[in-house]
Design a protein around this nucleic acid. Structure first.
Lengths: 212, 212
DNA sequence: AAGACGATCAAACGATCGTTTGAATGGTAG
DNA sequence: CTACCATTCAAACGATCGTTTGATCGTCTT
């Protein structure tokens, strides 16, 4: 329980490896034996540190999502504080932190695919977890978008933001995969993905409006 | 092997149930025992009719995708034959058949989620299968889009079509889920989804162009 | 030195997995 | 009627699943 010395390595190694294997084979497809043997820890360590496989899955999410949404809210606040805040600024605050997660470590790239997979799987238990813990973040973005698109009905805005979320989710799932050409660095590929996503979704959100 | 009389019921019931359970729990998460007991057939029937679980998965795809891509190509040809073919017409030919699959039967709604899940999982074996069997369909659409967006560089077009595919995939995964309000019929909800997707993605594809 | 406690370990638990087997079934052709 | 063959069936195969157990290790406190 001291969390200072001995259990650091085991816990963290399990989380890192689980992140990669869940991304690659899914939650049901990756077994605890694959995880523990790849992490070079004992099989029982998962149940000891996380209680169960579901507990491990939840912790994989919590570890990264706390940081992701903290960055999102900070970027949103910075954008809104700007004198001339554009639609592209808010989109950047929403999109960039999600794709930047894939830069900080090898596990980051895996996590965005874990997240995308969880969204795609529509696991009800997981959706509830996400809504309960991070729903307020999405709500703040809806308010910001509504302010920047005053000509858009609330229902219409929800439709379009759903499409934005879909495009981002798919891009996250694709990120770090085969499609990146070798001569471009991971960094520039990420920036290009962000740029294209913002440009595309900004145009989609403005469709039919007298250009906000 | 006669495929005419006796095996009709068993084979088809397995495919229908598997479609639903794969959509709900994933390929690894849904077991053959769940499938066969729900379909009220013997456990061994799956290996008898499809060889293996992978064989069943492949057949679930083939059965629907043949029809889906046939419709897509027919709609594309009809759109291109029109004297004033618009970008929205081609997008409709690409998007509508995918979402219409969810109307013809209860299994159809399940299948689009199976397809979306397969895309999100990035299963390499499955991607190869899709590329080998239906790659030519996507290629024809790329040609059509390129003709309607002459101001767009080829690489830029691929970027944007990737975003379109992502938005469509996510919409397919979401389709038939909780988000539909009860007072609107499934039919009108589908049409509204199609309309919003086309409007959004058309604007995104045209972004920066001198309006094609 | 002795005891306490968190952490790790090998081993096994019962359950469930995909697959295989060999016998029963039932309709059709000779 | 008989022989054949596609289909269905109960039963079991070995493998792997998530989880639990009890011993053991190492590190502190007293």
């Amino acid at each position: 329980m001291t969390a200072s010395t001995s259990n650091f390595s085991t816990r963290e190694r399990i989380l890192g490896v689980a992140e990669v294997l869940f991304a690659r084979h899914g939650f049901a497809g990756a077994s605890l034996r694959q995880v523990t043997s790849a992490a070079k820890v004992n099989l029982a360590a998962v149940n000891y540190h996380f209680g169960s496989k579901d507990g491990l899955i939840e912790e994989v999410f919590r570890r990264r999502l706390d940081e992701l949404n903290r960055q999102r809210l900070a970027s949103l606040a910075a954008a809104l504080a700007r004198p001339a805040c554009t639609l592209e600024d808010v989109l950047d605050a929403f999109i960039r932190p999600a794709l930047e997660q894939s830069m900080d470590s090898a596990g980051g790239a895996a996590f965005v695919r874990v997240l995308a997979r969880a969204y795609a799987e529509h696991d009800e238990r997981l959706r509830r977890f996400l809504a309960d813990n991070y729903g307020h973040v999405l709500r703040e973005f809806v308010i910001a978008f509504a302010r920047l698109l005053p000509g858009l009905a609330r229902e219409e805005l929800h439709w379009r933001l759903d499409i934005v979320a879909g495009a981002l989710t798919y891009a996250m799932a694709d990120f770090g995969m085969i499609k990146r050409r070798q001569e471009v660095s991971e960094h520039s590929h990420r920036d290009m993905t962000i740029r294209h996503l913002i440009q595309f979704t900004a145009a989609g959100l403005r469709a039919g409006c007298a250009h906000a």
